[in-house]
Design a protein around this nucleic acid. Structure first.
Lengths: 128, 128
DNA sequence: ATTGACTTTGACGTAAAAGTCAAATTTTCC
DNA sequence: GGAAAATTTGACTTTTACGTCAAAGTCAAT
């Protein structure tokens, strides 16, 4: 239990390079422990990496990902800060809703392209 | 009817710079007409720009967008090409489905953050 | 104790997608 | 038809997110 992951274990699992994980550490996104110089990743780090990569896939910048992580690490306590955060959440939600719409439209187009391909194949390859 | 758009009309409408539209032209994504040196955009160009920007929002590269546009411009006729295209469509679909899932998860998290904010605000600001 | 695999650090490089700036046209508007 | 505003071109710069070495350190196993 409470196993450590080596850096290459994680790079293999997630299909990223060691450079990428070191970069995320330099950028303050993760803070693996050290034995001597060697980085030791706990499963909490591993989960964090999963979230970072999810953020990356949907086009968040490093700065945005860091911001999100920090909100989780120490949520604001003061009312003004809370309201500010809620406004930022609203904005992100709008952005993501737009993106989801874009994706759905594009998926539909892909369906059309595929159908067109099938139709054309049927036309051509009557005897194929 | 059959109006021309100037470059700045379009930059204002879409919130991009002239540099961006010129860049898209250099990259072969759009081909506005010319009167002398001045670019004249037709509504077909305008629609194409909308599609380009949608592609951009969901994280497609210029190269990918160009590829998509070209498929629309001249769809492949040969069976091998058609099958290849269908494979690429499959891959894109997988990618987009993953992205949609990522977005939905993130939207849920945003909901949680917002609720936490509201709860906290209620705790603090009993008399606010 | 040596080989070989892995890891770290640091410096420099790179590709994509524009931004910026200057100079030369061009167009528009009165 | 001439000033002001808009547009073009070209060159150079910037930012982000890593990639690519090179050199040195570390660890495990033989």
């Amino acid at each position: 239990m409470n196993k450590y992951y080596t850096i290459t274990e994680l790079t293999r699992e997630f299909g990223v390079s060691t450079r990428t994980l070191r970069f995320y550490e330099d950028e303050g996104l993760i803070h693996p422990e050290r034995r001597g110089r060697t980085r030791l990743f706990r499963s909490a780090d591993r989960r964090l990496i999963m979230e970072i990569l999810r953020g990356r896939r949907i086009g968040f910048t490093i700065a945005e990902i860091r911001e999100i992580i920090q909100v989780y690490r120490d949520p604001p306590g003061e009312a003004g800060q809370l309201r500010l955060l809620m406004k930022r959440v609203e904005e992100k939600r709008d952005e993501l809703n737009q993106k989801r719409k874009d994706i759905e439209e594009t998926l539909e187009e892909l369906n059309n392209v595929e159908e067109a391909c099938l139709t054309r194949l049927a036309e051509i390859g009557v005897g194929t």
